[in-house]
Amino acid sequence: MSEPHALIAGAGIGGLSAALCLARAGWRVSIFESAAVLEEVGAGLQLSPNASAILQKLNVIERLRGFSLTPKSIRVRRARDGATLSLMPLADAERRWGAPYLLIHRADLQRALLQAVAEEDAIRIHAGVAVAGFASGSDGVVAALRQGLLRLEASGDCLIGADGARSLVRAKLLGGGADSASFIKRTAWRALIDANRVAPEALRPESCLWLGREAHLVHYPLRGGAVVNVVAVLDESEAAPRPEEDWSRLGDPAVLAARFSSWHKAARSLLAAAQDWRKWPLIDRDPLPGWTAGRVALLGDAAHPMPPFLGQGAAQAIEDAAALGEALQATSDVPQGLAAYAAARRERADRVQRESRAQGRIYHLSGPAAFARDAALRALGGERLLARYDWLYRVRRN
């Protein structure tokens, strides 16, 4: 009996992780990526233990040495005066949760995944080829492909839509009316700053979170301390961006400086040191009624785009990939396996979406509500605050 064949739309972190998990489960995999060149894009992200444990099994973590940061703590600071509201210790993260807590640039993680994929004979990437449609039947699935002016087809045993928040696979699977991903009137401004342009405190091996009125700021060093990754998230009143502007626009530093003019000098100096800002609109959606239909399934942002306030976008896609591999390894009935994958993941992913939204509201409080939040953070203490993330970070044992 020939090995089963999976078609994957999208070569992002979710798609590449899914390909590796399926290959380890005995599947042949074809990945179709609409971009002709897999460029190094994005910004820093956290690999919390729930995700790094999976990447360890895939032999990807070892490839990140020299690029990732193992932070000693998460520091929460108040915007107006820079006061530390909480210091959450991470030195014991691996023993506490079962795997390392890492900070990494998205491009470095994608490169490591691509290297791992290149070593798998069972995986093929087709760049510059987009999935334009599909037909799913009892015996398999056929994907309609577009490569420039060419129209092609590919046949397989299942199709995985890992094609992002604006997923074509999702739109065709559920119908356009069910595709309610929306701009949440917040933007993330991202920059990488050379280490020689920042104050020494910005190079401490920690993730620093600043909380202010209708905005927050996150920064941490990357790539062996050569750069500092900075993300500033702002509430916005502007209209939703056009689809072609979904991922990256140039940001005007003067706008950012004005919005942070009342913040502590350390935060303002860090923002002023950035030479190039990219601005991303943030996308969210209500939990879907289902992730699968027959031989087609959604994964990552295609299934559950979420705001970044828990830092779980990439981590949840990686969790999806592991669950998908396990479910399809456990049965030869592909539709049953895909349904089992969705059943195993939906409740947890839905909770992460809800908690991310709530976290965003807490981060951007102002006035008396912000005062109460800050007092609660100080009273709770770093260790007890960290314990609130045990449900999320603890490695799930099968």
Rank of each mutant, 00 (worst) to 15 (best):
Pro4Glu: 00
Ile8Gly: 01
Ile8Glu: 05
Ala11Ile: 10
Ala11Val: 07
Ile13Arg: 08
Ser17Asn: 08
Ala19Phe: 07
Val37Thr: 14
Gly42His: 08
Leu47Glu: 06
Pro49Ile: 01
Ala51Asn: 04
Ser52Cys: 03
Ile54Asp: 02
Asn59Ile: 02
Arg63Ser: 13
Leu64His: 04
Gly82Arg: 03
Ala91Trp: 10
Asp92His: 14
Tyr101Leu: 11
Ala107Thr: 06
Ala107Ile: 05
Leu113Gly: 04
Leu114Lys: 08
Gln115Gly: 15
Gln115Thr: 12
Gln115Asn: 15
Arg124Trp: 07
His126Ala: 12
Ala127Met: 04
Gly128Asp: 10
Gly128His: 08
Ala135His: 13
Ala135Asn: 14
Ser138Ala: 15
Asp139Gln: 15
Val142Trp: 03
Leu150Asn: 13
Glu153Phe: 04
Val169Arg: 06
Leu173Cys: 03
Asp179Leu: 06
Phe183Tyr: 15
Ala188Thr: 11
Arg190Trp: 05
Ala199Arg: 14
Ala202Glu: 05
Pro205Arg: 00
Trp210Lys: 07
Gly212Trp: 01
Leu217Met: 11
Tyr220Ala: 05
Ala240Tyr: 02
Pro243Tyr: 06
Glu244Val: 09
Glu245Gly: 10
Asp246Asn: 14
Trp247Ala: 12
Leu250Gly: 13
Gly251Arg: 10
Val255Arg: 13
His264Gly: 07
Ala266Met: 11
Ser269Arg: 15
Leu270Met: 05
Leu270Trp: 01
Leu271Val: 08
Ala272Pro: 08
Ala273Ser: 13
Asp276Pro: 02
Asp276Ser: 14
Trp277Glu: 04
Pro281Cys: 13
Thr292Pro: 01
Gly294Pro: 01
Arg295Glu: 11
Gly300Met: 03
Ala302Gly: 09
His304Glu: 00
Met306Tyr: 00
Pro307Asp: 05
Phe309Ala: 01
Gly311Met: 00
Gln312His: 01
Gln312Tyr: 01
Gly313Phe: 00
Ala314Trp: 04
Ala317Glu: 06
Ala322Leu: 14
Glu326His: 13
Ala330Ile: 06
Asp333Gln: 08
Gln336Met: 11
Gly337Tyr: 04
Ala342Ile: 02
Arg348Trp: 05
Ala349Val: 12
Gln353Glu: 02
Arg354Thr: 10
Glu355Arg: 06
Gln359Phe: 13
Gly367Val: 07
Gly367Thr: 02
Pro368Thr: 09
Pro368Ile: 12
Arg373Pro: 06
Asp374Arg: 04
Ala376Gly: 11
Leu380Pro: 00
Gly381Thr: 12
Arg384Ser: 13
Ala387Gln: 15
Arg388Trp: 03
Asp390Glu: 15
Trp391His: 10
Val395Trp: 00
Arg396Pro: 06
Asn398Thr: 12
